[in-house]
Amino acid sequence: MTQALYTIDEISARIKAGEALFLAGDEKRLAQLPPGQWVGGTIPYFMTAAGGAFDKEKIFATILPDYVESVHIKTYSKDTLGQVYMDAPGNGFSFINLPAACDTLLSFALNAPGFEQFAMTPLIGWVSGVDMTDLGKVSPRVFNGADASSLEDGAVVMHVTLPPGKGANIGIINIFEQGEGADIVFPADGFSADEVTVDGRPMKLADYFTENNLDTKLPLVADYYGAMINTSIQGIDKDSGQVAFFAPVFKGMTYRHAKPIADYIEHFTSQIPHDLSQHLVYSCNCILNYLYSELEGRKTGDIVGPITFGEVAYQLLNQTLVYLTIHDV
């Protein structure tokens, strides 16, 4: 695995040498890079080998293995992103960058499970963000390194072809699991909700949270056939009663409020597969885990990567670490 913070000069040299890179960093730094085989997104938070870090000078790079057969970088709009799985290589994976809060991300979050060929090939990536002190003032961006262009609404994808004998796989580490509380079912897909059913009874979701004094730092968790998938809570509007989410909830899916976690690091490290580091190529973790669990200066085992405003493992996820491994097959 080669994931670490580098100077602009170091990254520029690697780009000029023809290396294929996934990059994350401050907008001003990414904008200085030459064209080449790279994609990037804005964020100043990282998990490094030394621990959680904030850095606006260096760029976090994932250097793709030299056995990669070829890469193809493509920019998508909200209207064309439905093709992303169709464009994936026969053997390999696709890596996606989307800016937070843009229309393309909202569309992807709601519609990806209905895309043609959904999940048939590995799609991993992250949602770019900003310094938390710049929230609402600066727009997150993503970069298409092929022409060193950037955009604040759209998606940039690097489709990576692997040679015969290599296979890619996506995994997640989610420390949250469903708690012992009520089953919550939503009447419609969406990024916010008012009326829901709680253990089969109609109820305002905001009232359920208030009456049970539930911690909104803990996500709602759905059980996808054994995979725990989070939907993080953005906030509760006490006037309207609307509960807003960072990812959509889906009609008919059963959610529960997550079980409280005493110590993030302890839970996290206990879930790392024992042989992960041998095959790990890429990983990223969620800004909410970074902030709520106070990860700055703390280590999450050997797992490093950008800290993100959302994670993609086939579809949009929240409060989850996602990773890509490549195996001899």
Binding site: P122, I170, Y225, G226, I229, M253, Y314
Partner: peptide, 12 residues
């Protein structure tokens, strides 16, 4: 993982 997420969609 893809099979689990795919099954989540199928069940819905």
């Amino acid at each position: 993982l893809a099979a689990k997420i795919f099954m989540g969609r199928i069940i819905l």
